[in-house]
């Protein structure tokens, strides 16, 4: 039950993009460990810029 709730919470965090920064850190550590990763704020701003550079919302 507890594990279920936790995975549901994780799903909500992923869906709301709350978890995006942790995923970025993990990816960064795995692939680009030689450089310093962006901080949370810069990552958020860069992601918003990328997200809204194309067709992202419909009728």
């Amino acid at each position: 039950m507890r594990a279920r709730l936790r995975s549901l919470w994780q799903l909500v965090r992923e869906l709301s993009t709350d978890a995006a920064y942790e995923r970025y850190l993990a990816h960064h550590a795995a692939r680009h460990s030689e450089s310093t990763p962006l901080n949370r704020r810069d990552f958020y701003l860069r992601e918003q810029q990328r997200k809204w550079s194309g067709v992202n919302r419909c009728c």
Partner: peptide, 14 residues
């Protein structure tokens, strides 16, 4: 809020 106070915390901000 999402940029300066609690960056990227979308759930609570929303």
């Amino acid at each position: 809020y999402l940029r300066n106070i609690r960056p990227g915390r979308v759930l609570e901000g929303s």
